[in-house]
Structure formats: structure tokens, C-alpha cells
């Protein structure tokens, strides 16, 4: 059975605390994720939310960020949507900078999400905005070290 939780909040960092709390509660409650998985999920969801509010909604507090958590028997799925003009993620995905290059201050967020989660998808929303879908399997398939 799939259970869902939906959070929708204005584009402000202060709400990320709530997102992280829900994230922790959902992942801890199942007992199917390791501590490392929990860190990966938390970091990636916060990363997706900050991308949505900064790059998607351009920090406009009148635009919301919507987060949907779906708990499946074998994985957790998290959708993060913004409702702004967004950015050209297809171009960005083809030109992800080397994350270890210290000359770049920014541009590591998508790389981190790709490495920490089992899958990462982007979808343009019909009118405006973008949806990022993150999935983490419950079988302990962590790709990165502790």
C-alpha cells in the first residue's frame, strides 16, 4: 500500500525544517533505511527544495514549493515542484560542473542528488514550473560511502 504526505509552503528557507522533520519521520518509521540512507534522503530533499525556491521560484514568497512524499513497500518517492519560470535543466544536466573543482562556488546540487538517490527525474509542469522526482530504495542500495 502507498501512503502519501503533501506539504506546500512559501518560498522561504524557514519551512525546510518542517520538510526535514517529515523526511526523518517517514524514513525512520519504516525501519527499512539505514542511517546513511536517511542522511542521503534528507540532504537530497533539502537540495531539491532549495533549488525549487531559489532557481524555480526565484525566492518569490508568493510562489509555493510543493513536496509530496510517497511511501511504497520497496522505496520512498519524493516529488518537489516549483511554480516559477524555472531554469533550463536539460542544458544544465549536460553541463554539470566537476563537483571537486574549487573554482566553482555553485552547481553541485544536482550532482549530489544523483549520487545520493537511486533515481532522479525532472519534468516540466504543463503551465509553469518544474517537478523533480527523487527515489530511494529500501534495500540498502546506498551508492556512496558514510
Amino acid at each position: 500500500m502507498t501512503s502519501s504526505i503533501v506539504l506546500e509552503f512559501p518560498s522561504s528557507y524557514e519551512w525546510l525544517n518542517l520538510v526535514d522533520l517529515v523526511c526523518c519521520e517517514l524514513t525512520c518509521e519504516t525501519g527499512n533505511f539505514s542511517k546513511a540512507d536517511l542522511n542521503d534522503i534528507s540532504i537530497s530533499v533539502i537540495e531539491a527544495c532549495t533549488n525549487a525556491l531559489e532557481h524555480g521560484n526565484m525566492s518569490n514568497p508568493e510562489l509555493n514549493v510543493r513536496v509530496v512524499f510517497r511511501r511504497h513497500p520497496d522505496h520512498l518517492e519524493v516529488e518537489v515542484s516549483d511554480f516559477g519560470e524555472g531554469f533550463d535543466f536539460e542544458e544544465f544536466l549536460q553541463n554539470i560542473p566537476d563537483p571537486s573543482d574549487i573554482e566553482h562556488q555553485r552547481g553541485r546540487g544536482i550532482y549530489i542528488m544523483k549520487e545520493m538517490m537511486d533515481s532522479l527525474e525532472f519534468e516540466k509542469l504543463p503551465e509553469r514550473g518544474m517537478k523533480v522526482i527523487l527515489r530511494k530504495n529500501t534495500n540498502g542500495s546506498r551508492k556512496t560511502g558514510d
Binding site: K35, N39, S100, I102, Y111, I112, M116, T144, D146
Partner: peptide, 16 residues
């Protein structure tokens, strides 16, 4: 923290 360490590890910035 563990979270910051995870980010540094994944991005290889732990080598810096």
C-alpha cells in the same frame, strides 16, 4: 556533522 561530511565525500571536496 555527518551531513556535511556526506556532501564533502560525494563531491570529493573531502580531499580539499
Amino acid at each position: 556533522s555527518n551531513k556535511i561530511q556526506s556532501i564533502l565525500y560525494v563531491t570529493k571536496l573531502n580531499l580539499i
